[in-house]
Structure formats: structure tokens, C-alpha cells
Simulated scan of single mutants.
Amino acid sequence: MGAKKIGKQTVRLSEGVRIISAASTVSKKEGEGPLGKYFDKVIEDSMFGEKSWELAESRFIRENMELAVQKAGLKMKDIDYLLCGDLLNQCIASTFGTIDFQIPFFGLYGACSTMGESMSLGAMLIDGGFANHTLVGASSHFCGAEKQFRAPLSLGNQRPPTSSWTVTGDGAVVLAKKGNFPCITEITTGKVMDMGITDANNMGAAMAPAAVDVLVNHFQDTGRTPQDYDVIATGDLGDIGRNLVVELMKKEGYTMYPTNDKGGQFTDCGIEIFDKNAQDTHCGGSGCACSAVTFCAFFYPKLMSGEIGRMLFIPTGALLSTTSSQQGQSIPGIAHGVVIEGCGGKEGK
């Protein structure tokens, strides 16, 4: 294999790919949560003035991606490739949301891990010399996701305690070769993991094994431990999923300290984005936009300031569909790990 491949699942980029801008646009509920002040735009109307939830999601994508490019000091014509995805069938939110950009397009589906997938592939394109700038992101919409995967909101179905709340919004970053910005240095690509979970309202349990697989392989490939990172943030495991990761990692010989413990570094974007008690989100947040907007709004500024020296970002996804669920199949999970070095750097291996 090439010199960039280290270990089983990790690649180390040649010089690091810079994240030169990040933009986040969310709806009212996300704006009322703990991270409300960090988002670029909070849209009070989750319909965003459109006729359907699906069209609204496309507008979240369009306007937020335009904002990301604007914040980078670029124009759409400067972008070589666009990579993004969503939860809707055939990624229609992304297709219709970006159609006017007329940029070479890779539509991605990694469920709620899509932000990690898009960042990984966008960085690889630049590191491989195939692009100077890539625009990458992910989106979701609570109402569209509920209608597609569970039940339309008008039915008033009761949500079980294990359920999470799909984030409405879009997160996007612009990647480039150079500049004094946080940079992606390593990528650990996950495998599809299936532990037999069948409950579509318990995404955390379905995705936790995929996060553990990425963590273990990343540490083995790089020779690092969890303590070599200022922050390890999984995607949208919520409380149940994060607790499972801590338990499973302990069996693998690694101690993961949650951020609510003194000196802890392990958190989850689904926990950060909502106040689960005040906002009645049960286990926390989920959806492609969960890790995307949390990274763009909350973690990226800390990487820019040097408050975070090294971060391991692991969006997680549940690879189910209405067809597979109706046919009684289990829910496989996937996760993608991205190492991001802050502007202040971090000493260590």
C-alpha cells in the first residue's frame, strides 16, 4: 500500500488539509438549545417558507453552503468538488439544494455519519492533488426524517425513552491546501458493523459498535490513546450510545472519560446540542446535521483559537431504510473518524 496508509484503516495526509471556513444553519429548537449562540443562522420557521419539509431541507443546504463559501472569501466557481448528503430517499434534499451551484458533485449516503464521510473524501481529493478547494457538508430535517423512518408527526405517536431528536439544519465546511487554519491530518474509515439491533427508536445502541470499531482501530493504527486528544466527539449516539461506547472500550483496554468527569475528553454531538430534559429530546440529538452543525458551530471556533489542540471527530450513522425495517432486518452502523489539529497544535505522538 502507499506510504500514506498506516495500519488497517487509517491514512495520514501528506501536509494536512485546511478547514478554511465553517457554517451552520439550524431551526428554532436547535437555536433554543445549549449551543444556540454559536450557530451562524437560526431559522424560526422550520418550513423555511417552503411548501414541504423536503423543500425546506434543500433550502437549509443551499443557503448554508453559500454562507460557507462566502465566509471562506471564495465564490462558487472557486470550488472544484461538492460533497454532501442527507437522510431522504436518494439524497433528494442535497440534489435539489445544490443544483444551481453547477459544481462537480458527489452525493453521499452514510446516514448520520455523512459529515465524517464528506470531510474524509473532500480532504483526500485535495491531498491527492485532484482539487484546490472542496465544499463538504451534511443536512437533516426532523419532520422529514420522522415521516420517512418512523411515523408522520400528525399521528401523534409517543416517542420511547430510547429515541433521539433529529436535528434540523445544515453544516458545511470549505477545505483547502494552505492557510493558518485547523487541518485534517488523519482519517480512519469505518466498517459496517451489525450487532443485531432492530429497534428503529434506539439508534445509539445500533451505532455504538461502529464507533468502537473506529476508535480501537484508530488507536492501534496510530499508537495513540484517548488521552492524546483534547476532545473525542462521536456523532449522535446520545446518552445510551455514549455509555455503551465507554463500556465496550473498557473491555478493549481503553478508558474513555466523559467530559462531565474531571479531565474527561469524550463527548457526543447528540448530547451537546440539546438539553434533553428541558427540551424533551430523550436521549439527545441525531440526524446528519447533528454532528455537522455541532462541529461547525461549537468545535471549529475552539480549534481556530487553539483551545482544542487535537480532536478526533467521529460522526456515526445507522444504515437502515424503511424497506429493511419493514422486512425485519437489523440496523447496521457505520462511523468515520477524522483527526483535526487546531491552530495551536498539540504535543504528543
Rank of each mutant, 00 (worst) to 15 (best):
D221I: 00
F130D: 03
C343V: 13
L87S: 13
I340V: 14
D268R: 09
G328L: 03
C84V: 02
K41P: 01
C288A: 14
G264R: 09
G196H: 09
K75M: 06
E186R: 14
D194Y: 07
A278M: 13
C84P: 02
L248F: 15
I273L: 05
T162C: 12
T267D: 12
G342A: 06
M193N: 00
S305T: 14
A211S: 08
Y254N: 07
L155H: 11
T225K: 15
A93Y: 14
K147N: 15
F142R: 01
T294F: 04
V42C: 05
M1L: 12
R59W: 10
M124N: 01
D268C: 10
G110A: 01
A208I: 01
A297H: 05
I331Q: 07
K5R: 15
R150E: 14
S24A: 15
G7N: 07
I271Y: 08
V69Y: 03
K276M: 05
L108Q: 00
Q102M: 06
S52Q: 11
M256N: 02
E247W: 02
P160H: 14
I61L: 09
L153E: 15
C84W: 07
E50V: 04
E117P: 01
K177C: 06
A151T: 10
A200G: 02
P315D: 06
G204Q: 01
D213W: 08
F266T: 11
I240Y: 09
L319A: 09
